[in-house]
Design a protein around this nucleic acid. Structure first.
Lengths: 204, 204
DNA sequence: AAGAATATTAAACAAGTGTTTAAAACAGTT
DNA sequence: AACTGTTTTAAACACTTGTTTAATATTCTT
């Protein structure tokens, strides 16, 4: 008879929170075990090694990271509306998972880890939504500014992700409380939306 | 008689490169010593501890991080030109020091470190250039979009820093070589400049 | 050249790392 | 109740960590 959350899942959950906040190098197997209320040996009993557990967590995080994009892009709406909704959802998502962008970008920089070229699958998944074709069509019709996909994604990701990534830095520089910065983010989301939409979909 | 570069400086240089690429947790004292071609004990002989050496490096990195801003803002030019030149210089600077933004943002997230509220000095230094007053004036005259300082800095930093921070992620997703991505960055710099200037300084 | 001050070294320290082992506790089946 | 396979445990493994020590080498001063 299994409990509602099994030992394996408890460890996985603990590993997720610890890895995402401290990174692979920033924590120990024992720390993860302790966070899960388990013995150290159990971590390796279920996941063979710290690295294998990490890879599991990283992959899942990567999918979460892309999840919100896919959904909006799949809907059937004018491109400009899609963009607005996407930014809205992305800010929402990042408010719930603020550690994700930093985590992924950092761990991608560790040479030992995550250098699998399997990440191009992400692009394929996004491509499946048809968003890229929509953009090309809109660009051909003159409704959207001509620009390659890389810069397009860069513009959106920069303005959505950086503000949460630099939270502690900005708080420290501008002497803001956590709550004040969160308010600021709501305001900023508005600016970003207006700026991006104006730039990408210029009115004649 | 001192050599051209003393042992102390050699260690400091090595520490800088190692810390900036791997982070505080990602490297060991011995690794730094090895990179400097020195004995481990010398690291502590000159800097007392790994933490103290790190704090030194971090502080210097923080100053580098802000250096390029200060200069441009101090010049005597129309605000719109300052913005263009700033973005130009920032992309230039980040091409030479691509690890800096990630390094600072990450280490700011480690609770043990760098939580000194001394970072508000940065804001004061920027304020000394008069850039903030110029902005307020331009906003009062209707030449510049009304927006608080935080969002203003966020917009600029997001679009300058994120593209270099996410280099490995973007390369992996879009299957680009190092050189291809660097070319892309030059292109992107143009888009960013146009977008920011258009948004911040709307023509009536 | 002798002595004092500084710089450098190898070796050791205790504590922490990832991982393994072998014994114990638990569950389910007959 | 005895045997099953699966979970969980404490203890140990070899290795790395940051830091210190005490001896050696180098430089500077007289």
């Amino acid at each position: 008879m299994k409990k509602d959350t099994t030992t394996e899942e408890k460890i996985k959950e603990a590993a997720r929170t610890v890895f995402l906040t401290k990174g692979f190098e920033g924590c120990s197997s024992r720390e993860i075990a302790k966070a899960a209320g388990m013995n150290v040996a159990l971590v390796n009993y279920y996941f063979r090694s710290k690295s294998q557990l990490f890879q599991l967590i990283f992959k899942a995080a990567m999918e979460d990271f892309m999840e919100s994009m896919i959904y909006v892009f799949s809907t059937d709406q004018p491109l400009e509306d899609k963009m607005r909704i996407f930014i809205e959802r992305e800010y929402d998502f990042l408010a719930k998972h603020p550690e994700l962008p930093n985590f992924i970008i950092n761990e991608m920089n560790r040479e030992e880890a995550c250098q699998t070229d399997e990440h191009s699958i992400i692009l394929e998944k996004i491509a499946e939504t048809g968003i890229f074709k929509d953009c090309q069509k809109a660009q051909a019709e003159g409704k959207m500014r001509k620009m390659n996909l890389i810069s397009l994604t860069l513009l959106v990701m920069s303005n959505c992700q950086y503000p949460t990534m630099a939270k502690n830095l900005m708080q420290s520089i501008h002497q803001l409380t956590k709550e004040e910065y969160e308010e600021q983010l709501v305001l900023h989301k508005g600016y970003v939306t207006e700026m991006l939409v104006n730039y990408l979909f210029p009115k004649q």
